[in-house]
């Protein structure tokens, strides 16, 4: 548990500035935004108390909002995502005994289930963020393009990030 707290803090302090300085400027065709920082929510251990994960999700979104000047938008989306994470996870993996205290990765879940899990979370997050944005400014064709583009882009980068971390984990073994 303590080890997880340290890992989460380090990831938080690294990923949010990285998102603000690098990934937010990697927008493709002016529609697809890579939300790499939701890896903070993806990596939460499945057996983590829902209260804790919702609060961590809220803090993640709040941090991102400060950087992106979108007060409340990311905070609300991340809160909902952190809350819905466990049910979404159980769509693909029915047993979580083996995963006690561990983060969902390709290693712990298996590639197929993990990819589906990451794709679902990316889709959920894109839908949430862009729907909230659409309440302020609604352009239907742009909304659909943004959701589709950002989902795929986020999914690809999250998978890349996990593969990079995987190599490091293997080296350590």
């Amino acid at each position: 548990m303590n080890q997880f707290a340290i890992r989460f803090t380090i990831a938080y302090l690294l990923l949010l500035p990285l998102q603000a300085l690098v990934f937010d400027h990697m927008v493709l065709f002016n529609v697809a935004v890579p939300f790499v920082f939701i890896y903070l929510i993806v990596m939460l251990p499945v057996t983590l108390n829902t209260n804790v994960s919702v609060i961590l999700g809220f803090l993640t979104g709040l941090g991102m909002d400060l950087f992106a000047d979108t007060p409340g938008m990311n905070a609300l989306s991340c809160t909902v995502l952190a809350f819905a994470r466990k049910p979404l996870f159980h769509l693909y993996v029915t047993m979580d005994d083996d995963l006690a205290g561990r983060s969902p990765t390709v290693q712990t879940m298996g590639a197929a289930a993990f990819l589906k899990y990451v794709l679902t979370l990316s889709l959920c997050y894109s839908v949430l963020v862009f729907t909230i944005e659409a309440f302020q400014l609604f352009i239907p064709e742009l909304l659909i393009a943004r959701i589709a583009g950002s989902t795929l882009y986020t999914f690809l980068l999250l998978y890349t990030l996990d593969s990079l971390l995987l190599r490091r984990r293997e080296k350590r073994l």
Partner: peptide, 13 residues
């Protein structure tokens, strides 16, 4: 907990 976090976000929003 979920409701409190969501309400705080909505107030900011």
């Amino acid at each position: 907990v979920f409701a409190i976090c969501a309400i705080v976000s909505c107030v900011m929003l």
